[in-house]
Simulated scan of single mutants.
Amino acid sequence: MDNLILIIIVVVCIIFVVGTLIHMYNNLINLRNRVQNSYSQIDVQLKRRNDLIPNLVETVKGYAAHEKGVLEEVTKARSNVMNANGVEETSEANNQLTGALKTLFAVAENYPDLKANSNFQQLQEQLTDTEDKISYSRQFYNDTVLKYNNVCQQFPSSLLARLFRFKPAEFFQADEASREVPQVEF
């Protein structure tokens, strides 16, 4: 009878340990997939912004033909975003594009006819909406990365994360240049 109770206790402990390990592993998989999904959401919004930019540039060209450098900078930055791979490269390219767009809108402030143009206003509103969605997506992504990285680094799940080679995810970061207000001089 004592042996039977001991066997039952050992079996229950083994089941508990195995169940806990399965739960931790599934949690790591779930969080890793959430990180990938949230990054995909950023990518969707960046693509939407990239699709709007050629229309915006064409609209501005008609009014601000001598602002060729600003328009080229926006076009080049857009191309960099489209060709970026990975979180760090995409983040850096996105920051360049954000800065170029800020400069473009600052230039547009000096063209009253452009500001009154309904196409420009509509594109600016869509781009502003998209920028808000990108900002939210970045915040959601970074929150998800934080949760995932915490689970990968906290004991005891860190042991399982190392065993199955779960790597910490990168945060999507804005650089200092994208935080600055552009200066436009004529």
Rank of each mutant, 00 (worst) to 15 (best):
M1Y: 10
D2T: 12
D2S: 12
I5S: 06
I5A: 02
I7N: 00
I7K: 13
I8Q: 03
I8C: 04
I8L: 07
I9T: 06
V11C: 12
I14V: 14
I14C: 04
V17T: 11
T20A: 15
L21Q: 06
I22W: 06
H23V: 14
M24R: 04
Y25G: 05
N26M: 03
N27Q: 13
N27D: 11
N30C: 08
L31G: 06
L31P: 03
R34T: 05
V35N: 00
V35D: 03
V35E: 03
Q36T: 15
N37G: 13
N37L: 08
S38Y: 02
Y39D: 06
Q41P: 00
I42V: 11
D43P: 03
V44Y: 08
Q45A: 15
Q45W: 02
L46D: 03
L46H: 01
K47A: 04
N50H: 12
D51R: 12
L52M: 10
L52H: 01
I53L: 07
P54H: 11
P54Y: 07
L56W: 01
V57A: 10
V60Q: 09
Y63Q: 04
A65T: 12
H66N: 15
H66I: 13
E67T: 04
K68E: 14
G69F: 10
G69M: 09
V70L: 00
E73Y: 06
E73M: 07
V74Y: 08
T75E: 00
K76H: 14
K76D: 14
R78Q: 01
R78G: 00
S79N: 06
S79A: 15
M82T: 12
N83F: 08
A84F: 03
E89K: 13
E89D: 10
T90E: 04
S91N: 10
E92A: 15
E92W: 04
E92S: 14
E92G: 07
N94M: 05
Q96V: 10
G99Q: 09
G99K: 08
A100N: 09
L101E: 01
T103K: 15
F105Q: 01
A106R: 07
V107Q: 08
V107N: 07
A108Q: 09
Y111T: 14
D113I: 11
A116Q: 06
N117W: 02
Q122H: 14
L123N: 07
L123F: 04
Q124N: 15
Q124R: 06
L127A: 05
T130A: 02
D132N: 15
K133T: 07
S135I: 00
S137M: 07
R138W: 04
Y141D: 01
N142V: 13
N142A: 11
D143W: 02
D143G: 03
T144H: 00
L146P: 02
L146G: 06
K147R: 11
K147I: 01
N150I: 13
N150K: 11
N150H: 09
C152F: 00
Q154M: 13
Q154F: 11
P156E: 07
S157G: 01
L159K: 10
R162K: 15
F164R: 06
F164A: 04
A169P: 08
E170P: 04
F172R: 04
Q173A: 10
Q173E: 14
Q173I: 07
A174S: 10
E176L: 08
S178Q: 03
S178A: 02
R179I: 01
P182N: 08
Q183H: 14
Q183G: 13
V184M: 13
F186R: 09
